[in-house]
Amino acid sequence: MTLRHALTTCLLCLPLFGHAQGMGQPMAPWTLLDQFDQPYTFNADTHVLLVARSMAAARLVDAALKDQPGGYLEARHAAYVADIEHMPAMVAKVFAIPAMRSAKYRIMLDPQGRVASRYEGDRDTVQWLRVDAGRLAEARTFADAASLRAALEQAPAGQTVAAP
C-alpha cells in the first residue's frame, strides 16, 4: 500500500472515531434513557453536564448529591450522564440499574458510550461541563465529592453556573 492510500484510508476512518468537544463549540443534542427508562434530551436549557465514566466517578457524584432533595439537579439545569459501556449487560440489568432507581436524581445511562465519548475526561474523575447558549463554555474535573458538592452549590436554582 502506498503512503497516499494509507493516508486516504486513515482520513476516511476518522468519522468512525469519537471527537472531543472543543471550547466554544456548539454541543450537539442527544437523547438517553434514565434509570427509569424515561428519555432525556440534552438541549440548550441544560447549563451543566456531569459525566461519570467509571464506578469510582459515579460514587463521587452519589456522595456529592446524597443529602440533596429530589429535583436538585433539574433546578440547576444540570444533567448527569453515567457511562456504563464497560459494565456487563447482565450486571447492569439485574443489579446496577435497579440500585440506581433509589437515587433522588436522574441518571442518564450511556450503555454504548456514544455520548460520554464526545467529551474528553479521565475515567476516575467527574467531568463538569458548563454550557452557555448551547456551547461548551467551561470544562472542569472533580476528584472528590466535597469539591463537586461546593461547585453544585454555586449553581443557584434557575441560573447558569459562573466560573469560579
Rank of each mutant, 00 (worst) to 15 (best):
H5R: 02
Q38P: 09
Y80G: 07
A150E: 10
Q154R: 15
L3S: 05
I97V: 15
P29G: 06
L73A: 09
V131Q: 07
A157E: 06
I107T: 11
M90L: 15
R149H: 08
F95S: 02
L50D: 12
L148W: 01
H5Q: 01
A64C: 00
L33Y: 07
A58I: 07
A75V: 01
A78L: 02
P69I: 03
D144M: 14
I97R: 11
G158Y: 10
Q25P: 03
L60H: 03
D83G: 03
Y72S: 00
A155W: 15
F95N: 05
L65N: 04
R59G: 08
A44Q: 11
V91N: 05
A116S: 08
T46R: 09
A99Q: 05
R106G: 11
N43W: 14
W128M: 01
A162Y: 15
R130Q: 09
A162H: 14
R149Y: 03
V51K: 00
R53F: 02
L7N: 07
L14H: 00
A162K: 15
G134W: 00
D110F: 12
Q154H: 15
A63C: 04
T125P: 01
L50Y: 10
I107S: 10
T8S: 08
P69F: 03
I107F: 05
G71Y: 01
I107E: 00
M55F: 01
G113N: 09
A6E: 14
L73F: 11
D124C: 03
A63P: 02
W30A: 06
V51H: 05
W128Y: 04
A139E: 10
A28M: 13
Q38S: 07
H5M: 05
A145F: 06
A82P: 06
V61M: 03
D122C: 08
M108W: 14
K104V: 15
F142R: 03
L12R: 12
L136N: 04
P39Q: 12
L152S: 02
M23Y: 07
G113W: 15
Y119W: 14
Y105E: 01
T9D: 15
